[in-house]
Design a protein around this nucleic acid. Structure first.
Length: 442
DNA sequence: AAAAAAT
């Protein structure tokens, strides 16, 4: 296995670009995936967030395109499907850096842009297309996209691309692709086993690359939880956390677009440099906000799960789940916006009593306990389910650490308000992607 | 259970 990229048999133009980017040492996923992809196999790849998956597929794709002959007007030769416009643009940027010294052309194809302009772009026959599914499918059906000579199909965030919202479109697109193409599926949360029929319809004798032990909490991210009593309390906690974090880059996740907007307004009102990002905004607004966040013009981004996957913004120190995500996988992706590429980060979840069971199921899914923290003067009145003597079934019993128990008089442990434990066996909102109970009755 | 991707 190569320890430096120079040892790989790469085209000179590609190597020049890698040199320019000062990329020498491949990350573990790159070291495993690049040779396997160059050998031509279909691959199922799981590797943690921020571990370098994008380059792990771009390098072998570009190498294949540079070393293999293809007719001039063959249409697209490589197609990369991603779940959001932001991710498409980000991958395009990486791709253009790598093709800087070669004649290969790449384009991004997403909704929210002019259809005719995209059609014109296709006529220039870019070898590499990076797309979100909806708009590409339209081009396929109207005949402006030609995928019949495709050499490589990539599903980035593959589990997302194959879940309900995207699956139909993605499978239809795959139907337009050359049957002889190579297919690569990647995600931090890809279940490499049990792909079943879905896998068979897309992949041929896939090889599996699982770089990190599945569902192992990432060592680079410190996971914390803060208990909250109400929406108002959560707002105060959020403000306190961010005011102590002035000038650093933070990302706040909410479960709804309107909540993201509301939080952005609230924080802005308190003088923080903040904006929001979600799918109801226009492409232009989304571009502007992402650029402002990348350039440091805003320090806090309040986002929906639009920002949960793939986005690579350096130096996000803190990810805050204002709302808990609905699944363990969503949690992994959200928190994975920090602690990337060797950096460390903190993930803080605000947990209301009604979300306790969901939190437990996420912890169990990740096989870890979040460190419990409290902010001075803002300690929650509830402290998790009451422990029952001897029964050993208090779900939060394995806490690693509790926040300093200093504030004694302040908090009346008014457990009566949140009487008893939340119902067992039916965690609120838990679903079947690992956060659900182990045994599930249909 | 909500969000994203299309019109």
């Amino acid at each position: 296995m190569p320890t430096v990229l120079q040892e790989l048999p790469l085209d000179r133009q590609l190597r020049l670009a890698l040199d320019q980017l000062a990329l020498e040492t491949p990350t573990p996923v790159q070291a495993q995936m690049i040779p396997a992809a160059l050998a031509g196999s279909d691959l199922l790849v799981s590797a943690e967030t921020g571990s370098g998956k994008t380059l792990a597929y771009l390098v072998p794709i570009l190498q294949r395109l540079l070393s293999e002959q293809a007719p001039r007007d063959a249409g697209a030769l490589a197609l990369i499907l991603v779940p959001t416009r932001e991710l498409a643009r980000q991958v395009l940027k990486s791709c253009r850096e790598l093709t800087a010294k070669s004649p290969l052309q790449a384009m991004a194809l997403t909704g929210g842009a002019d259809f005719k302009y995209q059609k014109a772009q296709f006529r220039k026959n870019p070898e590499i297309v990076i797309a979100t599914p909806g708009r590409l499918l339209e081009h396929c059906e109207k005949g402006s996209a030609d995928l019949s000579a495709l050499k490589v199909l990539v599903l980035d965030e593959a589990d997302r691309m194959l879940d309900m919202g995207f699956r139909d479109d993605v499978l239809k697109i795959a139907g337009f692709c050359s049957p002889g193409r190579q297919t690569l599926l990647l995600s931090a949360t890809l279940k490499t086993r049990g792909m079943g029929e879905l896998g068979n319809s897309l992949l041929k004798e896939p090889q599996t690359i699982a770089v990190d032990p599945p569902r192992q909490a990432q060592a680079s991210i410190h996971h914390q939880r803060i208990l909250a009593d109400s929406v108002d309390h959560k707002n105060q906690l959020l403000l306190a956390l961010l005011e102590n974090n002035e000038g650093r880059r933070s990302l706040v996740f909410a479960n709804k677009r309107v909540t993201a907007e509301r939080l952005s307004g609230l924080l802005g009102h308190h003088g923080l440099k903040v904006d929001s990002l979600h799918g109801e905004m226009s492409t232009e607004e989304r571009k502007r906000v992402m650029a402002a966040f990348r350039e440091g013009k805003i320090h806090v981004l309040c986002a929906s799960d639009l920002a949960a996957r793939g986005l690579d913004v350096p130096d996000i120190e803190t990810v805050i789940n204002y709302d808990l995500p609905h699944s363990g996988d969503d949690y992994v992706h959200r928190c994975g916006r920090t602690g990337r590429a060797g950096a460390t980060g903190v993930a803080i979840s605000l947990v209301e009593a009604s979300q306790w069971n969901l939190m437990i199921s996420i912890q169990r899914y990740l096989n870890m306990d979040f460190e419990q923290r409290a902010l001075p003067g803002l300690k929650a009145r509830y402290s998790g389910p009451k422990k029952t003597k001897g029964s050993g079934k208090a779900a939060g019993g394995k806490k690693k650490k509790t926040g300093k128990d200093g504030a004694k008089a302040k908090q009346r442990a008014r457990d009566s308000k949140n009487k008893g434990k939340p119902k067992r066996g039916k965690p609120s909102g838990a679903v079947n992607d690992g956060t659900g109970p182990l045994m599930k009755k249909k």
